[in-house]
Structure formats: structure tokens, C-alpha cells
């Protein structure tokens, strides 16, 4: 009988302790941000989808069309094509397509590139209604930036 009453009292008390914590936290600063009106800074290492890097000297891509990234990718999302041009050493990039619908953001492509021609972008606002919106032409994106 005494145990029963004790349990009722301590049990009720435990509820008040919990309520007290809730009330205390109610008056503490808010920890969330009002996205999309407010955003948090991205960490430098954030791995978004990949992007071609601009060579500061020539203003062109650093890609030498070796195809290592294409081979390293586990999901076959990269298509690289290039052609021989007269007067230019090596190959010239004609196509660099990323099928982002299949990309797992693993970073194996970036690691495998011998010339550091690709990097991660910081894009994360990626919502769309059509699949085609996620087939990125990275060469065009780079040219658009120039």
C-alpha cells in the first residue's frame, strides 16, 4: 500500500520534472534557422555534384580527356568525349556529361583525376520535376561561368 502511494507520488513528480525541463528550454535561444530565408554557411569540404575546374592561366578546362573519372565511377554517370585538334597537344574536351540521377556523391571520380580537373560544387538546392534537369552538361556550365 505504502509502495503504491510512493509510486504515485514519485511518478507524478517525474512528470513535473520533465515539464520543468521543457519550460526551461522554452525560454532558451532557438537552435533552428528559418530556411530558406536564412541559410547556414557550407563547409568547404561539402560534396555536391561534380564540376569542371577552370584553369586560371588559359581560362579553359584542365581536363585532358583521359577517361579515368569515367572508369572510376561506380554508377557510370560520367560520359567524357574528346577529339584531336590540329596544333593542340593531346585531346580537346568536347563533351562532359554527368547523369546526376545516378550519382552517389562518393567522390571516387575527383580522387582519380590526374589533373584535378573536377571538383565538388556547393549546390544543394536541387529540386526539379523532370529527370532531364539532372543530366548536367558540365562543359556548358563551365563556359557559362566564363
Amino acid at each position: 500500500m505504502i509502495d503504491y502511494l510512493r509510486e504515485i507520488i514519485s511518478g507524478t513528480w517525474s512528470l513535473f520534472v520533465g515539464l520543468g525541463i521543457t519550460i526551461r528550454y522554452f525560454f532558451q535561444p532557438v537552435v533552428t534557422v528559418q530556411y530558406p530565408h536564412q541559410t547556414l554557411p557550407m563547409t568547404p569540404r561539402f560534396r555536391g555534384h561534380i564540376e569542371l575546374v577552370k584553369d586560371e592561366e588559359t581560362g579553359e578546362t584542365k581536363c585532358i580527356v583521359c577517361g579515368m573519372c569515367q572508369k572510376a565511377c561506380p554508377s557510370n554517370c560520367i560520359t567524357v568525349n574528346g577529339e584531336k585538334r590540329e596544333g593542340v597537344k593531346g585531346k580537346v574536351l568536347t563533351e562532359y556529361t554527368l547523369d546526376f540521377t545516378k550519382c552517389s556523391l562518393c567522390g571516387l571520380c575527383v580522387e582519380s583525376c590526374p589533373t584535378a580537373a573536377i571538383t565538388f560544387s556547393k549546390d544543394y538546392n536541387l529540386a526539379g520535376v523532370r529527370k532531364e534537369a539532372y543530366i548536367f552538361d558540365l562543359k556548358k556550365r563551365l563556359e557559362a561561368k566564363n
Partner: peptide, 26 residues
């Protein structure tokens, strides 16, 4: 946040590599 700053991702990490880790901590 801590893990994102080292690994680059927030949930489905792919940070370890054969022979070590992807990159050093900041």
C-alpha cells in the same frame, strides 16, 4: 556538422579508403 566538415557528407559517409582515410581533419 563535425562529420560533414571532415567527410564532406552528412549521412551516407564514404570516408574511409583502402589504406587510410579520404582526407585529414581540419
Amino acid at each position: 556538422d563535425l562529420l560533414e566538415s571532415v567527410t564532406g557528407s552528412r549521412l551516407t559517409y564514404c570516408y574511409f579508403r583502402f589504406g587510410g582515410v579520404y582526407n585529414d581533419i581540419d
